[in-house]
Design a protein around this nucleic acid. Structure first.
Length: 429
RNA sequence: GCCCAGGUAGUGUAGUGGCCUAUCAUGACGGCCUGUCACGCCGUCGACACGGAUUCGAAUUCCGUCCUGGGCGCCA
């Protein structure tokens, strides 16, 4: 049985390892192979005059990034990486890598994002890249475990839908037998329907699809959303749940991903609760102090405004009390000032991470709001029906996982946080 | 979609009309080397996105096409 490379210590007597050939250095009578698996790198030293001819034969023909199995004696060598090396008794070439490689896994020479994504499987062999996805895994595991611990039921809703969820955003049309269908832009309507189902608290981690032709470092056409909906909760309750979740996830990653964080050179600061709540009107004012292109009341926050606010606040914060007109039809207006609604955005200093709201649970008000947005209530009948049979008050939010990982690790491009990004121009691999 | 910047060996780059059958690094191949750790040294190999135009002469200027990056817009 082979050992993970990390498990081979200077005290190990003999070991079998399997991994990729990271680098070869041939000094003539002595050759060094660096072998890498997901746990680390170990040096295999071949004193050419002392090892069997079969090993030399194999060693001569091994290319970088081939998969090899090495069985040998472990020697404590202070100069070797990890303080130990293996002198092989057996060397087996398991799978050959063609040469030249499409990119340099050892990162002596950098590669552009486009080149990297074309050969993502190779790119992901880089310890730095793998570290991002180990952390992303920890983020989603910690977040879903946290929500389960708070009594949320993990649901799965359709990604193929008959009609536009909410109007507005562009959808990807697909052929569904003889009907037209769409890829779902959000589980919004379905998670709300589960409030009518009496589930009381639900979450879903899944893909969302948006056909917008954006071309930026913070947008994807297929993204991952963590959606939450809670009955008998108002917007303040779910904001608290959201900030608890963010703090928990940061704390979990800080405690459980030390190696990956070190690999990325990230010193993770766990944000402090409570996050500031900044009313929309105040946010506009703060942004207008520094942003050249003045925002008017009723404008959405521009990227420049988000950065200006982020610089001012310097940590995670909520923008609350949005004008009802620029939020979706299902956001609950304040009864005493209906031009504002109980909607919020969770912001990282760099960008928006999440948006949410208390939802309208009154059927007639909802129909009115759908109409006011220029949409036809008839096409939302499957969604409106539950509101006629006992819909509890409820609130929720959707959190972009890629943006969470991107901001947590200070990644320059959201594509770094997705294995196989779908953007305006990329559909493969 | 708009604006800006780009496309040169497998990868990352230099190169603003002739000195470029193109620089450097990495890589691959061959040679020397028994402690490298971005090993070193010598040699070899490998590229101007595509089409058109201007010019005695184009990697370099112009036009078109395709592709890429970034900003903006769009994004409940």
């Amino acid at each position: 049985m082979h050992l993970p490379i990390r498990a081979v210590t200077p005290e190990t007597e003999s070991a079998e390892i399997i991994g990729w050939v990271h680098e070869v250095r041939d000094l003539g009578g002595l050759a060094f192979f660096l072998i890498r698996d997901r746990t680390g790198i170990i040096q295999v030293t071949i004193p050419k005059k002392k090892v069997p001819a079969e090993i030399l034969d194999v060693a001569r023909n091994v290319s970088r990034e081939s998969v090899v199995r090495v069985q040998g004696t472990v020697k404590a060598i202070e100069k070797a990486p990890g303080g130990r090396e293996i002198v092989p008794e057996e060397l087996e070439l398991i799978s050959t890598a063609e040469s030249p490689l499409p990119l340099d896994v050892a990162e002596k020479v950098p590669a552009e994002m486009d080149t990297r994504l074309d050969s993502r499987f190779l790119d992901a062999r880089k310890p730095r890249v793998r570290a991002i996805f180990c952390i992303r895994s920890a983020v989603t595991c910690a977040a879903t475990a946290f929500l389960a611990s708070r009594g949320c039921i993990n649901i799965a809703t359709p990604k193929i839908v008959a009609a536009a969820t909410e109007g507005g955003t562009e959808l990807f049309p697909i052929a569904y037998f003889e009907k037209e269908a769409f890829m779902n832009q959000s589980p919004q309507l379905y998670k709300q329907m589960m409030m009518a189902a009496g589930f009381e608290a639900v979450f879903e981690l899944g893909p969302i699809f948006r056909a917008e032709e954006h071309n930026t470092v913070r947008h994807l056409n297929e993204a991952t959303s963590l959606d939450v909906e809670v009955s008998f909760a108002d917007h303040n309750d779910v904001m608290e749940l959201l900030e608890d979740l963010i703090v928990h996830v940061y704390d979990y990653v800080a405690k459980n991903c030390a190696d990956a964080l070190e690999e990325l050179g990230v010193e993770l600061a766990v944000p402090a609760k409570p996050f500031p709540r900044i009313p929309y009107a105040e946010a506009i004012e703060i942004a207008n102090r520094t942003v050249e292109e003045r925002l008017a009341f009723g404008d959405d926050l521009s990227p420049a405004a988000e950065r200006a606010l982020g610089d001012t606040v310097g940590q995670h914060y909520f923008v609350v009390d949005w004008p009802t007109d620029i939020r979706p039809y299902y956001a609950m207006p304040y009864p005493d000032r209906p031009e504002f609604c109980k909607a919020f955005d969770l912001m990282h200093p760099r960008m928006e991470l999440s948006s949410g709201a208390q939802r309208i649970h009154d059927h007639d008000l909802l129909v009115e709001r759908i109409g006011a947005k220029g949409l036809s209530p008839e096409s939302f009948e499957f969604y409106l029906k539950p509101f006629r049979y006992g819909m509890p008050p409820h609130s929720g939010w959707g959190l972009g996982i890629e943006r969470l990982v991107m901001t947590m690790l200070d990644l320059p491009n959201i594509r770094e946080a997705v294995l196989f990004p779908r953007d305006r121009h990329r559909l493969t691999p």
